[in-house]
Design a protein around this nucleic acid. Structure first.
Lengths: 204, 204
DNA sequence: GCGCCAATTCATCATGCGGTGAAAAACGAT
DNA sequence: ATCGTTTTTCACCGCATGATGAATTGGCGC
């Protein structure tokens, strides 16, 4: 039941945002009574945090493992492209093989990422450690790089990555069917190179 | 009064999103009666569209002028960096010199851009022509480029640009004060090069 | 079969929501 | 000063919201 509620809430929050969803909708979607949500999670905001946390933990350990593995396999020969790939690829992989739940989750994170009021604080709470690991690893891959450039590089990377992962369908409409926002192989084939090239030019 | 309502609504929508704001809050912030909002704009959603449209028109003519001017000044010698700069710079310029209203507006657009439910449709309605002009101009600057790469390049560019413009404060916290999300000169000095480098690698 | 505790339902509360229509006030042209 | 129009205020409607607490159900050890 907990999982069913989380799944329903995840999908709805992803589509309509925190304030665009009522606890009654969540309950109805999950096929449970409204009071059950409060029984399990307390206030609406705590439900949201529970949704956010569930996959954040998985994601963080995914990414940590991926970056650790990359560094271990390439001691002294790391490249920005390699580090960035290790940082992003776990998300692409989850989105491709994880089903609807993961896709909803990425759309949710993309929204939170662009929410000024409490989005920054939320991202900070759940994702800061792994981002610091990215910056540290990039610093080792490019020791001559200025630290500020690493942070700006991450800022641009995040924006591009999260919009791509949220699959809004906008590129489909814009390109009149030539490109598809759910074509993750196309994203994978381009996003890493795009971000790495941008990063290289910043530190040069 | 119309303008006061639009300003208040703009700020609140930017911070909390469409559903996170009540017409009463807007009225209170603008110092008017609730009924006045409906008198001027009708339903809440129409108020939102009015907010969105007001600066979209200005932005679209800004950008069109900027790209036209660039193409006129560099016939046959256009570069992707030049085109991208002409596309983004009007927004940076407005954000730097336009005051709080414009900053709120960009935060609002960033949120809409990442809203799956109706964000794509909204962006489409208000911004498609100028994006098509970007793609067309890029195609002339790099005739050998595959069209799909242009669209993907735009997708990544938009994500990076809108997150940077929305000034969420996240980079401040992340970099522990080294970088500031409201430092638009820093963004200007980096974003164009970042996106152009990414774009170049896609079409190569 | 009983007792216990967690899980689930039900009825309901106080509040705030978007929206409306009539009355009142402010304004401008004559 | 008067009238007609535009703008603003006021009182209110019907409804949905988040949340609560009491009552009910279900499963499991004994």
């Amino acid at each position: 039941m907990r999982q069913a509620i989380l799944d329903a809430a995840e999908g709805l929050f992803a589509r309509h945002g925190f304030y665009g969803v009522t606890t009654r909708q969540v309950a109805s979607e999950a096929g449970v009574d409204t009071a059950l949500i409060h029984y399990y999670f307390g206030a609406k905001r705590e439900l949201f945090d529970a949704v956010f946390l569930r996959r954040a933990e998985i994601l963080n350990s995914d990414r940590k493992a991926s970056m650790d593995a990359y560094e271990a396999a390439n001691p002294g020969t790391m490249t920005p492209l390699g580090v960035i790939t290790a940082f992003i690829d776990p998300l692409i992989e989850r989105s491709m093989t994880g089903g609807t739940g993961w896709k909803n989750y990425f759309a949710l994170v993309a929204q939170v990422n662009n929410t000024p009021a409490w989005g920054g604080e939320t991202m900070h709470r759940f994702f800061d450690p792994v981002v610091h690991q990215l910056v540290d690893t990039l610093k080792r891959a490019a020791p001559e790089a200025d630290l500020a450039e690493l942070y700006w590089g991450y800022q641009f990377l995040t924006g591009a990555m999260m919009l791509a992962l949220s699959e809004t369908g906008r590129i489909d409409q814009l390109s009149e069917g030539l490109c598809h926002s759910n074509d993750l192989e196309a994203i994978r084939a381009r996003l890493y190179r795009y971000c790495a090239a941008g990063f290289e030019i910043l530190i040069r």
